[in-house]
Design a protein around this nucleic acid. Sequence first.
DNA 1: AGCGTGAATGTTAGCGCTACCGATAGCGCT
DNA 2: AGCGCTATCGGTAGCGCTAACATTCACGCT
Lengths: 355, 355
Amino acid sequence: MSPDSVSGVTQPPPRRPRKRSATRSVTLSDVAASAGVSAQTVSRVVRDPRSVPDGTRARVEAAIAATGYVPNLAASNLASNRSRTVAALVPQISSSVFADTVHSFSTALAAHGYQIFVGTTDYRPEHEEDVLRSFLGRRPDGLLMVGTSHTSGTLALLAAAGVPVVETWGWSDDPVDLLVGFSNAAAAAAMVAHLVGRGRRRITFAGRHTSGDPRAAERLDGYTTAVRDLLGGAPRTVDAGPEPVAMDTGVTLLDLALERYPDSDAVMFSSDVFAAGALQACVRRGTDVPGTLALAGFGDFELARHLVPALTTVAVPSARIGELAAELLLTRMRGAPVERPHRDVGYEVVARESS
Amino acid sequence: MSPDSVSGVTQPPPRRPRKRSATRSVTLSDVAASAGVSAQTVSRVVRDPRSVPDGTRARVEAAIAATGYVPNLAASNLASNRSRTVAALVPQISSSVFADTVHSFSTALAAHGYQIFVGTTDYRPEHEEDVLRSFLGRRPDGLLMVGTSHTSGTLALLAAAGVPVVETWGWSDDPVDLLVGFSNAAAAAAMVAHLVGRGRRRITFAGRHTSGDPRAAERLDGYTTAVRDLLGGAPRTVDAGPEPVAMDTGVTLLDLALERYPDSDAVMFSSDVFAAGALQACVRRGTDVPGTLALAGFGDFELARHLVPALTTVAVPSARIGELAAELLLTRMRGAPVERPHRDVGYEVVARESS
DNA sequence: AGCGTGAATGTTAGCGCTACCGATAGCGCT
DNA sequence: AGCGCTATCGGTAGCGCTAACATTCACGCT
């Protein structure tokens, strides 16, 4: 034993500096050194250029350009406890009604310096919770969600996170926070009323309502109520189960509907994608639309008005939802009180040739 | 004046701890305290559960559940210098051929613990640089880009970032790094050959090639070459300029084509979206397709085979591109050597009723 | 008993940035 | 001159996490 350890007073070993896999990239202080100012000043130039006088700002900006500095947002987020980031959770992004919402939402927020990251749940609510959890790891300053019905786990996460939330594309008497949407049930009921007005009496609803699309289920509810009130008959419904939201599935749904309810004089679908598939199948088979069978969709995709015959559908102000959602969320993130935090944007039955 | 300041030896003021707007959220050490272990052990459980024995792991996991802990990824990124994040830059996501690529790419990478964030350039290459810059702020571990032609600013950013990159949906003799794609020119030439084989002699190309869609421009090149080689005539082209990639624009393009080249016996479009709009317009107007006019698209969207008449188009293995891109990128991110870093996935002319 | 070994866990020092505060200089006023 | 004010800039201490190392302990061996 060495005398040292016997003495009971061990000298701390001479510390060599820790090895860290250093980032090869340029940091704030590199820029600061190059510009001859402090890191703090560079930070100010990056975040709020007007807070620094012209001369200094020019020198710092030159140094940034010369060094090729790209700020590390992870460090910024950590230090400032703000991520300047907003997360959007949608069921599906491609070929979907939500594309316009996300696009306008993201454009509106980008103008205020926010980046949006989008997650898709593939129409599986149980998936929503996982996606949400991994998104919350990035500590978004705000959150957009499609739909108003969530699992209890999702609600717990939202509550714990304490982040401003906008729900969209639905309606609820008890929203989590902000709400920009409309009643899917009322929209579907309006479509039933339209079809009844056109003389249809045996209307079948075809959708994907049992497998995790709560909005389709709400539309089914509206359909059921309307059929009972207006026609007095039993509802006629067919369900696609877990099939994807695609035109192929629309054909399948059409076949199911005609097999189970051969006397149907109208089929309304829970999405334009389904209706478009069914409509083209009818054209190919020579089924007279709307003579023999009326068809209707939901969403008013661009496709709907181009098809021949043009597709009757329910138009929803998809882009407007995104804009409004961004507006309300910005107000809330600013900490200001939000006027009328629940906005009904409505819907409109667009009667075209297929009904 | 106090004696202190007169004495010239000012005591350092007693430092009260800095006030920081404390995060209200649960941190690693909260969990550690609750589980009776160190923060490091909790970190290990979160990142690599197998590195901790069952008993400890169970206790820590219980503590995580009890506290509702959600890891702060910004802190993790900063400390580990890895973001477990991959960025994808695409021209457009909704109603586009890239949707399948992004989807399969993201699925393949998610299986390895990576999150994908997607940015869209709206078909504006000058926008690409801005989007890239803001993405690099998040220090992605890898990058997917659509296309092989980039601005010099983009190339400089990529070089400085030193991040693995996969380019897709194109072909180049001098790629930035990895490449999974095919020759747009060859694909367009093959379509010309198909149309010529069907007896067409006055083929017009309609696209959006002057306004920032390099892939459309490449297709135009292939078309021009093929027309010269096979037909000997002058190329006939019409351009949509900055119009959006939408069915409406397809109708506009059709009208332009028929106005400028009234004797056209075939029109090939740079996208299925354009072709679908044009095709439905023909159906509505009673133009015989393919009798009077053959139409062809590009991309083989689901829509193409459902339309009546079904649309002739070029099928590209969009999902396969995403998968392969993920595979190569994973290998590179692992630091392993990549076999055959440039993969040609090919294309296929799908002859249907419209030609 | 003493030692080497390896598994399990703890300790320490940052990662790059910003909040917070303090220091200084310049200005207009009494 | 002295005062108070504002504009400008710098110093310091973390934000929550993990890499790198250190320590502890049980175990099998000589």
